[in-house]
Nucleic acid binder design. Structure first.
Lengths: 199, 199
DNA sequence: GGCTTAACCTAATGTCATTAGGTTCAGATG
DNA sequence: CATCTGAACCTAATGACATTAGGTTAAGCC
């Protein structure tokens, strides 16, 4: 009495891991749990994925791709504050919808370079960010600094929110909107270097 | 031939865990490893700490306390941009010096409430942040929004930096300085709500 | 119909987390 | 000083997991 083959592949395993991550948290994504979900023995997974760390890396890349696609869709044809808000909301929405996947993208990168090279997500995300800021007409190195500031703020907010850091009375939603306003204003009048500062 | 007693206590175990976290990363902090470092059997730790999760929670609280103290020291007697920069630099320095401990503070909070109540760190940190922003004379709810923005930016930057997100040519150091400039400018001219916006 | 190649499986090893049920040391009590 | 007590440790055992080695078996190709 044999079961039919599950027809696994690296992508299928990764997807199962990603789903599990969203359901029970990334650090409860175990080989055993993924195998269980796929109706397969633990050892079978190793034919498709090098090991747990590799699986996590794949989940991270999958998440990066998905997130990028969503941002690209939502920012298409927009510019200026419109684009900034669309970008940020898409970013945050993805994190909300896929907390486990999003967490995976935070891991200090220890991903198979060969694999990473094939995944368009991370590179694409950087391009999108630079493109989104084009309307603010910043020159290097200010542009890079601005990109880093925006990324930091979005990631920081979403991350703290997920960790329960905003347990306060005021809805995170409202603070989010104000932060985006603030970012926009900031980008419009990016502070010139103080004359006194030697840097 | 018996060894001398190690004279353990919950705090000592926590400290060993924290040191280990900084050395090998928080998720390599295991009961076994901590026990090994203390020259004790795994089971002995359970007399001082409920379980792994509890240990991590204690490390997080320890880190929060330490970080808060450092920020308090460095911002004492300062105000305005001076205070902001001191605050931010102390924050970032702590994360650099104690990456494992810092990571522990990011965990979605699952800490024994009774324990958390005794730890002044988290509460103190919030107070310090509000105090630091006093110079900018914001009223609620803007003040809360500003606090959240600052926390998000600092945490996001440090977190991305630690994850290797700034692999670019431009030194993170320089971007950091510019981001603080930007935050300061932003706080000085916190954008008024747009007249058109119904919120 | 045999062959190759994946896709799976069984078995085994080693690391951890955690619990149960003792020892033993250090200091208070008599 | 003898002892009692509680905290500090230990041994032993169980049960997840991760990972490897060494088979089976299904599916498509000739």
């Amino acid at each position: 009495m044999r079961m039919a083959r599950a027809g696994l592949t690296a992508d299928r395993v990764t997807l199962a891991g990603a789903e599990l991550a969203d359901e029970v948290g990334l650090d409860h994504v175990t080989m055993s749990a993924v195998a269980r979900r796929l109706g397969v023995k633990d050892a079978s997974l190793y034919a498709h994925v090098r090991n747990l760390e590799d699986l996590r890396g794949r989940i991270a890349l999958l998440a990066a791709d998905e997130k990028t696609i969503r941002i690209a869709e939502d920012t298409a044809g927009r510019a200026g504050k419109d684009a900034l808000v669309a970008f940020a909301n898409a970013y945050r929405a993805y994190a909300h919808d896929h907390p486990g996947r999003y967490t995976a993208t935070q891991i200090p990168i220890q991903i198979d370079p060969e694999l990473a090279a094939r995944a368009p997500g991370p590179r694409r995300a950087v391009e999108l960010t630079y493109g989104m800021l084009r309307a603010y007409a910043l020159d290097e190195p200010d542009l890079t600094d601005a990109v880093r500031l925006v990324r930091s703020t979005l990631h920081g907010f979403v991350s703290l929110e997920a960790a329960g850091g905003f347990a306060h009375a005021r809805p995170a939603e409202d603070s989010w909107a104000r932060c985006l306003d603030a970012l926009h204003t900031l980008l419009e009048r990016w502070p010139a270097r103080h004359e006194g500062d030697p840097t």
